[in-house]
């Protein structure tokens, strides 16, 4: 039998044998009937006055934040992700689940998974903060911003977090801008950078405005968030808008959410034909 791993003292499956029946972790555990530890802290004593968003972020980053930072993070979800409009693609899953009489948890679970999209939600989130972090690194090395943006456009034909499906203006930026300003958390390097990028893109033929993904990414990068931390924080960020969509649909007559007649299928395929067994 051929052996394809380089020979060493470890077996090819040593990662598995060393983990059999044991999980070494610093993330936490439930001590049955007694207590819970999360990232080295006792849940019941150290978090009894914490808001849910504080423990969510502690679970993601292992860090604690000031009350002003928490207000900023809370505002991101409240102002930027809580749209109870069932036409939006992820929310529509919640409405369809309601009209088809599925459960709330299935509705929200599926709609949350769907929010990890390419053209909205988690895809632009993760690519936006990645772009800003990379761009700032390059500028710090002395590379001109215009060159960085040109290179990015050449490579990806777009800039993550700029432009928007359906409409080119993002109404969430002003209220979020105002909140960050009120909290004195607006003037970090990444927020300045995202405005500089927008200025460049508006000047040129691209005519792309920043959307909320890049603005939030800039705010979070200024608070020290990494790519993964920002993405993970945003995963549940649309959920407050999903529940009303489900509730509305489940309270209306079953099947009555934007029903489609048979003739609403715009068929563009081949003409009617007869099955002739296999075409070997």
């Amino acid at each position: 039998m051929d052996n394809f791993k380089e020979k060493n003292n470890m077996s090819a499956y040593s990662d598995l044998t060393s983990s059999e029946d044991v999980l070494y972790t610093d993330m936490g555990a439930w001590f049955q009937g007694e207590r819970v530890v999360i990232r080295g802290k006792d849940l019941f004593t150290e978090f009894k006055n914490a808001s849910w968003i504080e423990i969510l972020l502690f679970g993601i980053t292992g860090k604690s934040y000031t009350q002003d930072q928490i207000k900023l993070f809370n505002g991101m979800w409240t102002l930027c992700g809580s749209y109870p409009d069932p036409r939006i693609w992820n929310n529509r899953i919640a409405s369809l689940a309601g009209t088809a009489r599925s459960t709330t948890a299935l509705a929200i679970g599926a709609a949350t998974a769907v929010s990890e999209a390419k053209i909205y939600g988690r895809g632009p989130d993760i690519r936006s903060i990645d772009f800003l972090l990379r761009t700032k690194d390059k500028i710090d090395l002395g590379i001109d911003l215009n060159e960085v943006v040109k290179e990015e456009l050449k490579k990806h034909r777009t800039i993550a977090g700029f432009g928007r499906p359906v409409i080119n203006k993002d109404e969430r930026i002003k209220p979020m801008h105002d909140l960050a300003e009120e909290l004195n958390l607006l003037n970090g390097d990444y927020v300045n950078l995202v405005y500089d990028v927008e200025e460049y893109l508006l000047k040129g033929r691209y005519r792309m405005r920043m959307n909320i993904a890049s603005f939030l990414a800039a705010l979070m990068a200024d608070q020290g968030f990494t790519v993964r931390e920002y993405y993970q924080f945003m995963v549940l960020g649309f959920s407050a808008g999903m529940f009303p969509c489900y509730i509305d649909a489940v309270n209306k007559p079953e099947g009555s959410f934007f029903p489609l007649r048979c003739e609403r299928i715009n068929y563009t395929g081949v003409a009617q034909r007869k099955w002739n067994s296999k075409k070997n």
Binding site: F258, P259, L260, C262, E263, R264, I265, N266, Y267, G269
Partner: peptide, 26 residues
């Protein structure tokens, strides 16, 4: 197909409705 209304474009599937119910496929 109702061109002035929202519709789903598909090369895969076409339906003909029951004569007395436009929402049921015959």
């Amino acid at each position: 197909m109702m061109k002035d209304k929202e519709n789903i474009t598909s090369k895969i599937w076409m339906e003909e409705a029951e004569d007395n119910n436009p929402f049921l496929a015959k």
